[in-house]
Write a protein that binds this DNA or RNA. Structure first.
Lengths: 323, 323
DNA sequence: TTGAAAGCGCTAACAA
DNA sequence: TTGTTAGCGCTTTCAA
């Protein structure tokens, strides 16, 4: 691949002059300019981003670390981040932690090796002190997306509020028994639980971590049989919800007749499921756009002592047939 | 971030010696070795991949260009490619063409700017001469994944064979009218059509490009009314299939009672849909693994004149409830 | 076994 | 306006 030095030789000027022409920010004699540009075009010159980066300027690289790219929600998030970054001339280096903390930690190091200009991270859990330490060491702007991180820029949906919203909605629809599928440390479960307790449903709430196939069916059956009142399942994400629908169907329970089901993330498929899935929608586009903008802002003009950015967004409810 | 030169100063040796210690491939006095390693560990040294790359060696970067990362199939593909690349110490630079040829072309240039060691590409269409030209100019090993490209390494599922397999299966199940959802230039449609023609169903095949909501419903209704014989829809991918199921349901047609539906890609959700979706499964894992291995093999020892690699894999049928 | 010197491709001083 | 020089962090000669 042709370099500036080679173009310089071919056109009989100095290499820095070529640089001046190609970066376009300095005055150069029009004659030379044309010659250089013609030569560059002819040989399909492509600047070496690595050399620029090494030279101390930006690498035009953004690290993007997510938990599971094969989850439609994160796939969508990455897609939007990529689009937004590209719009500003940045490319993204993709890392998939696969919910493995060892990977997460390692990738945080790898990100540094590439001297990325900034990073967008979906941490595995609400952030620990240890994790915070790793991130600080990155010494590039970092923003956590979809989760809040103490002392770091973060943009996320307020999970507790989203959970409370689900609780209000379900209670308003006349449901009186609730099962949450997901971890009990999940913020949306906390909000969900708290709102239900305030309504006097404190003893009508169960939760179970997500399990596969048969076990999920078992759990659902036992839960359904073991109480009374209209039953509703709140799934931690739409994938869980899909599995719940499937399990309920194989138990012969109709949705929403016997059991209501509500998902989380409002993934595209939800609107086509049978029954169509009620779900909580996160402003994905806004998160991606603002996260990238924020990181790039910090890249362009680093103000070390600026306060961390803490942007909780509101989720919204998309009501369909399953509740 | 600490550099080799700084470590050299701190430990009182020359910078190349530090390099020798940290790259580990040359003999160094054990005393020095320990001192240098200790210092590197203490300051959390991370090699500058850019400098290594610039110096003429590898960048440890692989470009991955897909058509749509938000499609679960490609998300999964990217995930596996990332895992496999990481296993070999490579990171991936992600590009999403969004089915826009302009993007595809531009990103092929951007890939060069980063001096990636190789690229894995899902081209938008079966490859044109123009596209081939761009790819050649990359002058790094390129492999096309999921599509065949003349004169380039490619690993893919033989679409025509997959289409024929679907035709055989549907005909064997007693279906006698067929609608393909997707482009007529799609290889699987060609194979599907040809196999059906061979069975004398030549005049019982229709096709339509994918359309949204109402239009899809319209199309399906008209097609369903306009003929006789057991009807089956072959959707170009599982997302289309999901929409078809939804549209049929809103038309009051039961699946598989009135219409059979078969998808393509065997995405995870298929096994939980209502009804569970029959689909064509591609060996995703094998494709990702072999594609990365092949590219890296070419990176490690470039043999310019070696013949292009052409690996058609076989798809398999996953039969569920929808047919 | 170690150090000195060169150079990858580029930008940013500084001089002319 | 242009060229000269230096240097980013590293690997690779070549000497010692």
């Amino acid at each position: 691949m042709i370099t500036m030095t080679e173009i310089a030789k071919l056109t009989g000027v100095s290499q820095p002059t070529v640089s001046r022409v190609l970066s376009g920010n300095r005055k150069v004699d029009p004659g030379i300019r044309e010659r250089v540009l013609a030569c560059a075009r002819e040989h399909d010159y492509q600047p070496n981003v690595l050399a620029k980066g090494l030279q101390g300027r930006k690498t035009m690289l953004l690290g993007v670390l997510v938990t599971d790219i094969s989850n439609g929600f994160f796939a969508d998030l990455v897609k939007r981040i990529e689009m937004e970054a590209r719009k500003h001339g940045y490319s993204i280096l993709l890392f998939n932690s696969d919910y493995n903390p060892d990977n997460e930690q390692e990738y945080l190091s790898v990100v540094r090796r590439y001297r990325v200009d900034g990073a967008l991270v979906v941490p595995i859990r609400e952030t620990s002190a240890k994790w915070n330490g790793y991130v600080k060491r990155l010494d590039v702007p970092v923003i956590t997306v979809t989760r809040r991180a103490e002392g770091l820029d973060s943009i996320y949906v307020d999970q507790a509020q989203a959970g409370a919203m689900v609780a209000d909605y379900l209670a308003g629809r006349g449901y009186g028994r609730f099962l949450f599928i997901g971890r009990d440390c999940d913020g949306k479960y906390a909000g969900f639980r708290q709102a239900l307790e305030a309504k006097g449903f404190g003893d009508r709430i169960s939760n179970t971590v997500y399990q596969d196939g048969d076990r999920l069916r078992q759990t659902l059956r036992e839960w359904f049989r073991s109480g009374w009142g209209r039953a509703a399942v709140f799934a931690g994400n739409d994938i869980y919800a899909l599995r719940v629908l499937d399990a309920l169907r194989s138990l012969g329970l109709s949705v929403p007749g016997n059991v209501g089901v509500i998902g989380f993330d409002d993934s595209d498929m939800g609107s086509c499921l049978n029954p169509r899935l009620t779900s909580v929608s996160q402003p994905l586009d806004e998160m991606a756009r603002r996260a990238v903008e924020r990181v790039l802002e910090r890249v362009e003009r680093p103000e070390p002592q600026e306060a961390a950015w803490d942007v909780p967004l509101s989720a919204s409810l998309v009501i369909r047939e399953s509740t």
